[in-house]
Amino acid sequence: MADVLFKLKNVHFSYLGRIPALCGVDLTVAKGSRIAVIGANGSGKSTLLQMLDGLIFPDQGTIRAFGTELKESVFCDEDFSANFRKRVGLVFQNPDVQLFCPTVKEDILFGPLQLELERKKIEERFAYLVEALSIQGLLERPPHQLSIGEKRKVAIASVLIMDPEVLILDEPTAGLDPLTTRHIIDLLCDPSSEKTLITSTHDLHIVEEISDVVYVFGQDKRIVASGEPEKILKDEDLLRQNNLVHIHRHRHEDKTHAHPHLHIEHHG
């Protein structure tokens, strides 16, 4: 029980009080676990991640983080707020939302400066990330001039520099070319890291690598299945019902046929 970082019980949330986004979600996140959240568009994945980051709060039900129930009021306590922000980092789905400073360098440094982390530690992390993400040439550039792949790298760097214990990623590989995707996954899935990783994605190719447990969100905005990646990715019916199966259409001489593409076939 001591290892539980987040615990959600029957969580409901709606936007403007009338557009439901989460309808009875139960979820437990253990320390050091790697969780993938998959589901169709509009199934509530991003809402869940923002709730885990203490940006929105349940209309009904409870969410506990590090033993404390998350409510708007607890973030009025400056110590709790600063401690929580140091421990939990969220990479937003849209990097344009996250990159608001005049230069890439300032954007990366924004978080640790707000949290008043130790200067020496900031400089070390900064140097490491710049090297690891190969973004030396981008540092003095305004974020709006970057490509989508570069923006995403910078957005990830802007969170990793805070070295959070829990890293939450909202579709980190959306819109990226295969090589950049590979690079980012390698960085995030560092085997020596003990970080808790919570990733929302549509990219079933990466699910096995980034997770030990997969939660599938249904159109009814609740978790419809959970389990090990191998089990979930083999369940063709489950994937099909939740708009997650990849249908590939081929042409063989004069005939065209379509079939689903499973992502763990090579293990068979």
Partner: peptide, 22 residues
Amino acid sequence: TLHNQVYSAMVSRGYTGEPRDM
């Protein structure tokens, strides 16, 4: 919409109303 999201992204990285820079 963007204004709300950007503010959330700032809060998420520890912004409390008085930005600090180098």
